[in-house]
């Protein structure tokens, strides 16, 4: 059993190896070879993983923050009560079905139920599945963050005459979102990891790459290693980026602690 990373520099079609390890990525520069090397393919796959994750995360944040906010509103009027009920149902529904099952639903079932989705590419369907699944978890964290604020904050905002919308927009959410940056970091990392289930519906992201190339070449270990390294790099970068965000939004004179525990 040998270990030979140069397999990455090999073309996927021919027997040649690229001297710079890249193939069609740098084709316009007329160096390397014309076909796709495994390295090119790997980077493309990484790109798909990142795209699916980022789209999913942005959608999840928008939906999750809205739903989480809805869950903290007082349910006084009929609209208030039904929004609260809707938000609770949303969270329970998307939390209790495994990601893979949700991906299958989005890929096999929902386009048949909603014909206008038939033309949507599969990577977007995976993004939607990830977004809806993660939005439920983000909603929980947003709710916890809002509820960890002193109750007087909302009262003070109301006493000044701010409307409920204004008090959430200018007082409550800015603080709550800062508080939940640590659990949001976990969620961002989770979306990257969960994007791996896209292999089940043939989206050419990293895990699919690993499975396919392991069969094609007989160098599964090298391929798996490369993919693992990329996942680790991505996770590390997500952590770093969130750390920068946390530092940029830090409030002078205030130490914040996250209300949630592990996971």
């Amino acid at each position: 059993m040998t270990f030979d990373l140069s397999i990455l520099c090999k073309s996927t079609l021919e027997e040649e190896y690229s001297p710079i390890c890249f193939g069609e990525t740098f084709q316009p520069l007329l160096i390397g070879i014309n076909d796709q090397t495994y390295l090119d393919w790997l980077l493309k796959a990484w790109g798909w993983t990142l795209s699916v994750s980022i789209i999913g995360l942005i959608l999840a944040l928008i939906i999750g923050i809205s739903i989480g906010t809805l869950r903290t509103l007082p349910g006084k009027s009929l609209i208030g009560r039904s929004s609260l009920y809707f938000a609770n149902c949303w969270v329970e529904l998307f939390r209790n079905i495994p990601v893979l099952v949700q991906v299958f639903l989005w890929y096999h079932v929902i386009p048949l139920m909603l014909p206008f989705l038939k033309s949507v590419p599969s990577y977007l369907l995976v993004s939607f599945a990830l977004a809806f699944f993660t939005s439920a978890r983000i909603a929980e964290q947003v709710k916890a963050g809002i509820q960890s604020l002193p109750r007087g904050q909302h009262a003070a905002a109301m006493a000044l005459g701010l409307s409920t919308y204004q008090s959430y927009r200018f007082v409550i959410l800015p603080m709550a979102l800062r508080i939940i940056i640590p659990p949001l970091t976990s969620e961002a990392m989770n979306i990257v990891k969960n994007s791996s289930v896209a292999f089940a519906v043939s989206v050419s992201e990293l895990t699919m790459f690993a499975m396919q190339t392991q069969e094609e070449t007989s160098r599964g270990i090298e391929m798996y290693l490369a993919v693992t390294v990329l996942y680790v790099i991505t996770a590390f970068s997500v952590n770093r980026i969130m750390g920068i965000i946390e530092r940029k939004t830090r409030i002078p004179g205030l130490l914040l602690s996250s209300p949630s525990g592990a996971h």
Binding site: A157, M158, A159
Partner: peptide, 21 residues
């Protein structure tokens, strides 16, 4: 309109409740 009313009645709280951010 409660917002109108509240803009004419000022309130100071036991825990100050300044907006920390």
């Amino acid at each position: 309109s409660l917002t109108l009313l509240r803009s004419q009645v000022g309130m100071v709280f036991q825990n100050f409740e300044l907006f920390p951010h």
